[in-house]
């Protein structure tokens, strides 16, 4: 009897992971005016890493992504809180945001907002929390 192998799964997921990561970044970037944002961008990112876990096993992914996800979650929450406190230092309410139009060399006139920094914090917190949950559930043996 032949061993069950997953050649098709591996070949598909090599392409699909790239597509899912690109889509996660797209969701994160488009979150300012359109549906999306840090939370769902982080969740799509986690979906890509979970697909890698399913296909390649937990040890190989851990060796190639040597990141402690608990520290990622802590860093994300810290960034989110500090962007909120930054408004309070300037005498404005908590989580106050400013935005302006900046002339960038390639993109022309671009709108830059400080809410993106808060979104980076949210995304890092979501990635760290869900990866910690999944790794501690899937690793019990």
């Amino acid at each position: 009897m032949k061993e069950p192998n997953d050649v098709i799964l591996r070949t598909v997921s090599k392409v699909a992971v790239v597509i899912i990561l690109t889509f996660a970044i797209n969701l994160f970037i488009s979150g300012h005016h359109q549906p999306g944002g840090g939370f769902i961008g982080g969740l799509a990112f986690v979906a890509a890493i979970v697909l890698l876990f399913l296909v390649y096993g937990i040890e190989k992914v851990r060796k190639n992504i040597p990141v402690d996800f608990k520290k990622v979650a802590g860093t994300g929450v810290l960034i989110a809180v500090f962007t909120g406190v930054g408004g309070m230092i300037n005498g404005k309410p908590f989580l106050y945001q400013v935005f302006g139009h900046v002339n960038l060399p390639f993109f022309g006139e671009t709108e830059m907002a400080t809410a993106v920094l808060f979104d980076v914090g949210v995304a890092l917190a979501v990635i760290g929390t869900s990866m910690t949950i999944i790794m501690s559930i899937g690793d019990d043996r």
């Binding site: 969701l27 799509a44 979906a47 697909l51 096993g57 937990i58 899937g138 690793d139 043996r141």
Partner: peptide, 28 residues
């Protein structure tokens, strides 16, 4: 697009559980 991705990952996880008895393997 997001529902497609999540349904894909969920189907792979469940079918892997049926075939091997474990969702996330420790070793390849």
């Amino acid at each position: 697009l997001l529902l497609g991705i999540l349904s894909f990952v969920g189907t792979i996880a469940l079918s892997r559980y049926i075939e091997r008895g474990v969702v996330i393997e420790r070793k390849q």
